[in-house]
Design a binder for these strands. Structure first.
Lengths: 307, 307
DNA sequence: GTCACTCTTGAAAGATATTTTCGCGCCGTC
DNA sequence: GACGGCGCGAAAATATCTTTCAAGAGTGAC
């Protein structure tokens, strides 16, 4: 039973087989993998071309594991089986070969000159954006957009760095005339979540997928019948059980100087922006005038004489 | 005998499996193919992606031939067997698809499918990052880093969308042991700015460079002798006259659906991240332990069972 | 410290896909 | 019209992939 649950879980989460977002997917799912599976995933992400040339047995031997483990890993990555993973791998290999070099930039070091820091950071964030976009499940995204566009009210939960993302989303939604509120106080969040019911929507933002202060209000909202959306980097985390719609953010490798919060924020913001644009499209009739109105309203706050 | 000859012939001629020149190879070898093989080759050249999804049996049925013929065709094209042809096909398909992608330079339209929205947004934000990184004055950045790293206390001003960026900066600086505060209330900001003096630092964040509510506290801080830093997209705006150091964010084109706030935020966050990393480098001795300490402190807030 | 439990793992059986073999039937030639 | 050669597909043989199952490792509770 537990096995069944887990399998269907991971399988449905990554419904469409990832085309080029494989490295990102490996990084995203690595924490939820067992040691042996991680070895396989690592090999696959590290040398797509080489692994594409191997059979299950070959890859199992290379990684010192068994065929069963290889197949399990393929499944976890969202493919029906090893055969399909292998095809995707071949595609990926062809892509990297034709495209520019993988360019694995070095970590940011303590003694990097400031110009290097700028370049590396910009590159890393670009990479994060590309990964997130590639790995984002557009079906789930579309569903989330529909839910939010039609919701009576929208509650948003996030703490720490994710709280800012939540506020960003709330600001945007308010600007196009939706009723949205970003909660940062966990207690108040729960208190408010109790008020939700069918027809309302709740959005939880947490990179770890296991932040109690965010899970709790989402659970309450879920139980009350509101439609729930989770934006998380760990689609297998505890929060997913209370999420009707799951939007996965991709995870970049982090270093000592560059905490995970930095790239997760970039990723989350992209998702939030996509939600916003999607909703603005659906509600264009009301969103467009609302946007220009809010623009107008701010005009007088800016000193007109820009020299 | 003759059969053997032909096989070894074509086999050795195309020794290295063709990478992307498959269509050409099909055309070249077509005359030497039998009718059935031509049908298979045609199908393969016409729809690589579709054929890559088929098994030998499937392709045989599709072309109205047999498995044996499909395998023979694969051999003729220079592959050891159908399996390898299929891998090459998958690679080819991926290549064509990625080649088609770069057509996302257009604006986001109201009727864009959600997948396009994601691609375009990601692309735009990547562009913004690249522009910002290229335009960022590293000398000014280095100076700002020095100021902040040495400041007794740091006040940060931002309203609207920029307020979130300011809070992000404050959160980060606090995590490495600096005394930073992000003000969102313009009145309180001014009230606090009055307290500043030489040795303190003030950071103002405004895209327009002319937001009165942000200019005012920065002016006060400037007059009181604090070192002032402005992060703005308009280096010629009124705010610059009160800024000791000016960090310019780049501005991407905006559209009706994509307000300026979106790309300016991306740009501002990159600058903030650069500041943070720069400061963390300078104060590594204290920053590193502080970072891991704050990491530790949060650990128990996460549900430990992530697997 | 030990026990019971769950989760991970690989060996081997089972299912599919691919390759090879083999012979039929079409086609041109004498 | 008969013979020889060749293309072709059915089916056997093989390789590859998938599933099952039980043993082992790790973990938490008492």
């Amino acid at each position: 039973m537990t096995n069944d649950l887990k399998e269907s879980f991971s399988g449905s989460a990554g419904a469409p087989p990832a085309p080029a977002a494989l490295a990102a997917k490996v990084r995203t799912l690595a924490p939820s993998m067992t040691r042996s599976m991680q070895r396989v995933a690592e090999a696959v992400a590290g040398d797509p071309a080489g692994c594409a040339a191997l059979t299950v047995t070959g890859l199992a031997e290379l990684t010192g594991t068994s065929e069963a483990t290889v197949v399990r890993t393929a499944r976890l990555l969202g493919y029906p089986g090893y055969r399909d993973l292998r095809l995707a791998l071949a595609g990926l290999a062809a892509q990297q070969q034709s495209g520019r070099a993988p360019a694995v930039t070095a970590d940011i070091a303590v003694d990097d000159p400031i110009a290097d820091v700028v370049a590396k950071l910009a590159y890393d964030e670009q990479q994060t954006l590309a990964d997130t976009a590639a790995a984002l499940d557009t079906v789930q995204l579309g569903a989330a957009v529909s839910v939010l566009a039609a919701a009576r009210r929208i509650d948003i939960y996030g703490v720490g760095a994710s709280s800012l993302v939540g506020q960003d989303l709330a600001q945007k939604l308010l600007r196009i005339g939706l009723i949205a509120h970003a909660h940062t106080d966990p207690h108040l969040a729960v208190t408010n979540a109790v008020q939700l019911r069918s027809g309302d929507a709740a959005v939880a933002i947490t990179h770890s997928g296991s932040t109690g202060d965010v899970i709790e209000p989402l659970r309450v909202a879920f139980d009350r019948g509101a439609t729930t959306i989770a934006i998380t980097g760990r689609p297998d985390g505890p929060i997913s059980q209370y999420a009707d719609h799951l939007l996965t953010t991709s995870t970049a490798r982090e270093s000592e100087l560059r905490p995970a919060a930095m790239s997760s924020r970039t990723s989350q913001l992209l998702v939030v922006d996509c939600l916003f644009i999607g909703i603005a499209q659906r509600t264009y009739e009301t969103a467009a005038p609302a946007l220009s109105a809010s623009y107008e309203a701010l005009a007088h706050r800016h000193n007109p004489r820009t020299r």
